[in-house]
């Protein structure tokens, strides 16, 4: 049995009095595309952000590739990781945001080159070469010198994907990557993601794109109010939802 890429055991998270995650249990296998579905406010983003420790888990265990997120365990005791150790953990986890969050003061190429140079001190020449290849892979070889404000939303999101890939992550997190896009730009981003899935990348994708989930997803989880309501293959869950809440949600989005 291989270690799962992500393993969540009874993960809880509260903001003040409000408990947003109420015991999440799930496993994401390596090389699979794992889709997260659920109504607004159900805690999908929060869970994704816990995986790379942008949020701290309050209770339960969350591990990536066999390593606890944010803590280390020695002789049965948990020690909080310091800031630098957390930064090191994040290096291997790429994240793509709903609002792209490209660095506004840098060109597309500089955005992609930034982290390998700053975080890993890789030689600039190699990074540049790799960055150009990545931009080509997302279809933006000719836009490398442009600033984010000069790019369309779809182009920005593709640069953001290339930027995350530049760190050669073992896991990619997508938080509604196409929700902020005009409908005609959604396809180009999904194409890049499909391509990435085919290359064997482990991906966790929060999305409302049911078509993408059905076609590309290997597993699908439906979350509501901080718990996993239902999970299975996309085909099972989408075509034959067992739970009333899943049925209600799907009847709205399908």
């Amino acid at each position: 049995m291989t270690t799962p890429m992500v393993k969540a055991e009874d993960v809880h998270k509260s903001f003040g009095q409000v408990e947003v995650l109420k015991g999440i249990n799930l496993e994401v296998r390596a090389r699979e595309v794992f889709c997260l579905l659920g109504p607004s406010g159900s805690g999908k983003s929060t869970f994704l952000r816990c995986i790379n420790h942008l949020e701290r888990v309050d209770a339960g265990r969350l591990s990536v590739d066999g390593q606890l997120v944010g803590y280390k365990e020695r002789a049965g005791k948990l020690y909080e990781l310091n800031e630098n150790e957390i930064a090191d953990q994040r290096q291997d986890i790429g994240m793509v945001f709903q609002r792209f969050n490209l660095f506004a003061h840098m060109t597309a190429l500089q955005n992609v080159m930034m982290a390998p140079i700053q975080v890993r001190n890789e030689p600039k020449k190699d990074v540049r070469e790799r960055a150009l290849q990545l931009l080509e892979r997302v279809g933006l070889a000719d836009q490398s010198h442009k600033y984010p404000s000069q790019l369309s939303g779809g182009q920005q999101q593709r640069v953001a994907i290339a930027r995350a890939l530049a760190m050669k992550p073992k896991l990619m997190l997508f938080d509604e990557p196409t929700s902020a896009l005009d409908p005609e730009l959604v396809g180009e981003v999904l194409d890049v993601m499909r391509n990435l899935a085919e290359s064997g990348m482990t991906m966790i994708v929060v999305t409302h794109e049911i078509g993408f989930a059905r076609e590309v997803g290997d597993s699908l989880v439906f979350m509501d109010a901080g718990v996993v309501v239902e999970q299975g293959t996309p085909r099972e869950v989408l075509s034959n939802p067992q739970h009333a809440r899943t049925q209600a949600f799907l009847s709205k989005v399908l």
């Binding site: 942008l54 800031e83 930064a87 994040r90 945001f97 930034m114 982290a115 700053q118 760190m167």
Partner: peptide
């Protein structure tokens, strides 16, 4: 979102401040 994206790439707090 700018500093969040930077942190998500593994940049440390100080570099995030001075570079981003």
């Amino acid at each position: 979102g700018q500093s969040e994206a930077s942190m998500a790439l593994g940049m440390r707090r100080q570099k995030t401040m001075f570079k981003i």
